[in-house]
């Protein structure tokens, strides 16, 4: 590239970017700005619309459990608790399944089976949420209730698994276990598994072939190789996939909307009827909400958004420190 036959000229170590490079830089930069622009527009719009409600409620928005914008008594404590409990249950269901399936596809399955499983997972990611909702409501719920009853009978000493009425009396009737965070969590968990599996599988399959072979050559078993090479390498993918799934779990609307029985008190008994979710609340209430009510719903969306921002920020810090993230970062 540089001229070798002109020795007297001092060679500049800083190369001027080529025209294609500066164009490339400009284009990608524009894309970045556009993306941020769209995203900020959504965020800004949320904030502006939420402003009216937040001005009225102030700080109590975060600690109040009731949701009654009509009487100016409204807060997000119970709703947020429900949202997060559903998401956590979903993650408990989804993450082990997703890691297992991703490893199965990338490490165990071969040939036709592998590509079949890959396209199955992709397909599953597109099952409309309303189908999951109906399935959860009409099929899964009836089959999960005995499990809930069993757990609450034998694990009642764990506060989360207790199911009791207001006076502390244990409940065993089937109707006490319907429409719970547990059931919603399972359904949402199943919904997010495909997303998580796809991302994780992609990360696992990128683990360096040399290291895999090294591990195998040193006599490790397949699992030993997975544990020492694939999983450490794919940690970024595991976290990235989990976060992507968590995002969907927190924001899932229709399936949760169809399953839960919304309540506006914090319900620590996850197996018991009644929970809530921000996006389900929006879907339930937007139709009949006044302007102020809509503003309060937006504020709820905004808080969820900020919480995810924090969670994601933490996660991306971890990803950046992991190997697959650090190598190029």
């Amino acid at each position: 590239m540089s001229k070798i036959d002109a020795p007297p000229v001092r060679r500049s170590l800083v190369s001027a970017p080529s025209r294609s490079d500066s164009a490339f830089k400009a284009v990608t930069f524009t894309a970045g700005v556009t993306t941020v622009g769209i995203m900020l527009a959504v965020g800004l719009f949320l904030s502006i619309r939420a402003g009216a409600a937040l001005k009225v409620s102030g700080f109590s928005f975060l600690i109040e459990q009731q949701w009654s914008p009509d009487t100016r008594v409204f807060g997000i404590a119970a709703i947020l608790f429900g949202t997060i409990s559903i998401a956590i249950i979903a993650m408990c269901v989804a993450v082990p399944l997703a890691i297992g399936t991703a490893l199965l596809i990338s490490e165990v399955a071969v040939g036709r089976l592998k590509s079949f499983l890959v396209s199955m997972v992709d397909l599953m990611a597109a099952v409309p949420s309303v189908v999951y909702g109906l399935w959860g409501l009409f099929f899964l719920q009836a089959n999960v209730i005995p499990v809930s009853q069993w757990i609450s009978t034998y694990f009642a000493w764990i506060p989360f698994f207790r199911v009791s009425d207001a006076s502390g009396q244990s409940l065993t009737e089937a109707s006490a276990f319907t429409s719970s965070a547990f059931i919603a969590g399972i359904v949402v968990g199943l919904m997010v598994v495909p997303t998580q599996t796809s991302v994780m599988r992609e990360a696992f399959s990128q683990a360096p072939i040399g290291e895999r072979e090294g591990a195998l050559a040193l006599g490790s078993t397949r699992w030993g190789m997975i544990r020492t090479v694939v999983i450490p390498f794919g940690r970024g993918g595991i976290i990235g996939g989990t976060m992507l799934g968590l995002g969907r779990a927190l924001g899932e609307t229709i399936a949760v909307y169809m399953i839960i029985s919304p309540i506006f008190t914090i319900n620590w008994q996850l197996l018991k009827t009644g929970t809530n979710s921000v996006s389900a609340l929006i879907a339930l209430r937007y139709g009949e909400a006044s302007d102020f009510g809509l503003s309060a719903l937006m504020a709820a969306g905004l808080v969820l958004f900020i919480i995810t921002l924090i969670v994601n920020f933490t996660a991306s810090t971890i990803v950046a420190r992991s190997r697959s993230g650090a190598e190029t970062g």
Binding site: K25, T28, F29, G32, T35, V36, M39, L40, A41, V42, G43, F45, L46, M243, L244, L246, G247, R248, L250, G251, T253, V278, S279, I282, A283, Y286, M298, G301, L304, F305, T308, L309, V311, N312, F313, A315, S316, T328, G329
Partner: peptide
């Protein structure tokens, strides 16, 4: 990934956070 820098980190954070935007809010927007 290729340009990087502080602004890129900002973009990444924003984009990451938006993955949890309730889809109904996208509709509302």
């Amino acid at each position: 990934n290729e340009i990087g820098g502080r602004f890129a980190r900002f973009v990444r954070t924003i984009a990451d956070a938006m993955t949890a935007l309730p889809s109904i809010v996208a509709g509302l927007f």
